Every structure is written in structure tokens, then in C-alpha cells.
Simulated scan of single mutants.
Amino acid sequence: MEKMSLEQLKALKEQSDMEVNLLQDSLNNIRTATVRLEMASNALHDLSLRPQGKKMLVPLTASLYVPGTLDDADKVLVDVGTGYFIEKTMPEGKDYCERKINLLKSNYDQLIEVASKKKSIADEAGVMLQTKLRQVAPTT
């Protein structure tokens, strides 16, 4: 990095900062998805404890609930993405959530490592850039 020009250092710093920001957005998305899957797993657990015929409120959206009656808690519909749902047994549904959570946590750990390396590169480029700017700047 020491042999790079000011323009090259500036470009490297900007590129690294942009990549760190993108990685941070991905980390936030993974955190959000993990929380949603954990909530779904907890909901499945709670649902499995309720007796058939139990009156309950069914969420249609985050703020709209309608009254309903629990018909069969042994089977659930699992959203596997892009508008596809698969019918699974309760244990299969819980297992699906746990596998997805573990996958997301693994991806999260890998992204943390990459983001840390990119941040180090950006920081080092910033220090080198400041050093070179001080050397170039006329002393008064």
C-alpha cells in the first residue's frame, strides 16, 4: 500500500468503505431474518401446546388479526420463500426453522470475518492516505 498513489489510496479507501457498508447491511438483514425465524419457532412451540378447537386470534398482517379456531396443530404450512409454502408436520416445521437459524448464524459469522478484514483495509488505507497528504502538503 505504501507504493500506491494518492488517487489509488483514495479509491481503495472508498471501495473498502462501500464494501463494509454493504456487508453491514447484509449483517442487519441476517439479524432480522434470524429474529423472525426464532419468533416462528417459538410460535410453533406455543401452537403445539394448544388443544384442538382452541379459539384464537390469527394474524393476517402485523396489525390485523381475525378470530379463528385451531383445527389441526399437527400440520403447519412453512414459507420456504418466493411465495411457496410446504405442508410439514410440527416437528418438521420446528426442524426447518432450526436449520435455517443455524445456517444464518453460520453466514453471519463468516460475514463478520470478511467485514472485519475489509474494515482493516479501509482503516489502513485511510492512515496511509493521511500520511501521504501530510507529506505532500506544504508546510507554512
Rank of each mutant, 00 (worst) to 15 (best):
T34H: 09
A115R: 13
V114M: 04
A115F: 01
L57Q: 12
G83M: 07
L60P: 01
Q135M: 11
A40E: 08
E14L: 15
T89C: 08
P59S: 05
D46C: 14
L9G: 03
D17L: 14
Q110E: 06
D95N: 07
Y84Q: 12
K10E: 08
V114E: 06
E7P: 04
L47R: 09
L6K: 03
R31Y: 14
I86P: 01
V78C: 11
K13Y: 04
M4V: 02
T139F: 08
L77M: 05
E113M: 11
S120A: 10
E38I: 11
Q24M: 09
L6G: 03
D72K: 10
L22V: 04
I121G: 03
V76L: 11
L44N: 05
L47Q: 11
H45L: 14
Q135S: 08
I30W: 02
V80N: 13
I30L: 08
K10N: 09
A137D: 07
Q135P: 02
P91D: 02
N28F: 07
T89I: 08
L133A: 02
D74Q: 15
L60H: 14
R99T: 11
K10C: 03
L77H: 09
N29T: 04
K119V: 01
K132E: 12
A73D: 10
F85M: 09
V78E: 04
T139P: 00
F85Q: 13
K13G: 04
Y84L: 06
G93S: 12
K94N: 05
L44D: 01
V35H: 09
I101A: 00
V136W: 14
F85P: 00
Q110K: 10
K94Y: 03
S48E: 07
E2K: 10
S120V: 06
G126V: 04
G126P: 06
D72W: 06
I30A: 00
N102I: 00
L104V: 02
A43W: 02
K55S: 13
S41A: 15
L133Y: 07
G68T: 09
N42H: 10
G68S: 07
E2G: 01
V76F: 10
D123E: 11
K118T: 11
L37P: 02
D71E: 04
R36Y: 03
T61R: 09
L57R: 11
P51K: 15
E7L: 07
A73K: 15
D17P: 03
N28P: 00
E113R: 15
M4I: 01
L44Q: 02
S116E: 14
Q15N: 15
T69F: 00
P138W: 02
K117D: 09
R50H: 08
P51I: 04
V58R: 11
N102V: 00
M90W: 07
E98R: 08
A73Q: 15
K119W: 12
E124R: 10
F85V: 06
I86L: 03
S48V: 02
K118H: 06
T32K: 05
A122E: 04
D72P: 01
H45Q: 15
S48N: 01
Q8K: 14
S120L: 09
P67S: 00
N107H: 15
A43E: 11
G83P: 10
L23C: 10
L22T: 02
M128K: 11
P67A: 01
A73S: 15
T89R: 11
A125H: 08
N21V: 00
G93N: 12
L111T: 04
K55W: 04
M56N: 02
K3I: 06
I112M: 13
